[in-house]
C-alpha cells in the first residue's frame, strides 16, 4: 500500500500480492521461533533417561485427539471459505464454522491444561516433561488467541461489508495464519502424544 491506498476501499491484485508476500515472510520468520522450541524439545528430551518420564501424570490423550480433530476441521472449513471468497461465492457460513471450531479447540485446550494441572503436573514441579509441555503449548495457545482474534475481526468485517470478494487480503491472511497455527499444533501433538 502506498500512502494513497491505506484507506483504499478496493484493493487490486498488486495489493493482494503485497499482502501475501508480507504474510509469507512473517510465517517464515515466526516458524523460526517455533523451530527453536522444537529443537529445545529434542535436546532436552534426549537428556532424559526415560521418555515420557515415570511418575508424571500425562495429559489426556482422548482430549488431545479431540482437540486435534477440531482444529483440523476448523482449518478445513476456513480453506473452503477462502476458496468460495476467491470465486466470489458466499463464504461466511464456512468461515463461521471455522471460527466455532477454533473456539472449541481453545476450550478443549484449556480443559486439557486444567485437567493436567489438577492432577498435580504443574510447571512448578520442575520436571522436563512439564516444562516442555506447558511451555510449548502455552506459547502456541497465545497464537491461538491471536488467530481467533483475527478470524473474529474478519467475520465482523464480512458482516459489515468491509471485506468481501473485492477486498479480501485481510481475510485470506487470517486464514493463512490459522493454517500455520494448525500445522504447529500437529507438530506439538506428535511431540507429546505420539510415542
Amino acid at each position: 500500500m502506498t500512502i494513497a491506498s491505506i484507506h483504499a476501499p478496493v484493493e487490486d491484485t498488486r495489493d493482494r500480492t503485497n499482502a501475501a508476500l508480507g504474510m509469507a515472510i512473517f510465517i517464515g520468520s515466526w516458524a523460526m521461533a517455533f523451530a527453536v522450541l522444537f529443537i529445545s524439545f529434542l535436546i532436552l528430551r534426549q537428556r532424559q533417561a526415560v521418555w515420557p518420564p515415570v511418575g508424571v501424570t500425562l495429559p489426556s490423550l482422548p482430549l488431545a485427539v479431540a482437540a486435534t480433530l477440531t482444529l483440523l476441521g476448523s482449518s478445513f472449513a476456513l480453506h473452503r471459505s477462502v476458496s468460495a471468497l476467491r470465486r466470489g461465492a458466499p463464504f461466511t457460513s464456512w468461515w463461521t464454522a471455522g471460527l466455532v471450531g477454533g473456539l472449541v479447540f481453545a476450550v478443549l485446550q484449556t480443559w486439557l491444561w486444567a485437567d493436567l494441572w489438577a492432577a498435580g503436573t504443574t510447571t512448578f514441579t520442575g520436571g522436563t516433561y512439564e516444562s516442555l509441555f506447558y511451555g510449548l503449548t502455552w506459547f502456541h495457545g497465545l497464537h491461538v488467541l491471536c488467530g481467533l482474534g483475527a478470524l473474529f475481526l474478519a467475520r465482523i468485517g464480512a458482516a459489515t461489508g468491509r471485506y468481501g470478494h473485492q477486498r479480501r487480503a485481510f481475510v485470506v491472511n487470517a486464514a493463512v495464519f490459522w493454517h500455520f497455527v494448525d500445522v504447529v499444533w500437529i507438530v506439538l501433538f506428535i511431540c507429546f502424544f505420539v510415542p
Binding site: A33, V36, S40, L44, T123, G126, E130, S131, G135, W138
Partner: peptide
C-alpha cells in the same frame, strides 16, 4: 530469520524465572 530465535530463547528464560520450569 534470527530475531525470533532470541525471542523464543527469552520466552523460555522468562518461563524458567516466573513459572518454575526447567529449560
Amino acid at each position: 530469520l534470527f530475531l525470533p530465535v532470541i525471542g523464543s530463547a527469552m520466552i523460555l528464560l522468562v518461563l524458567d524465572r516466573a513459572f518454575g520450569t526447567q529449560f
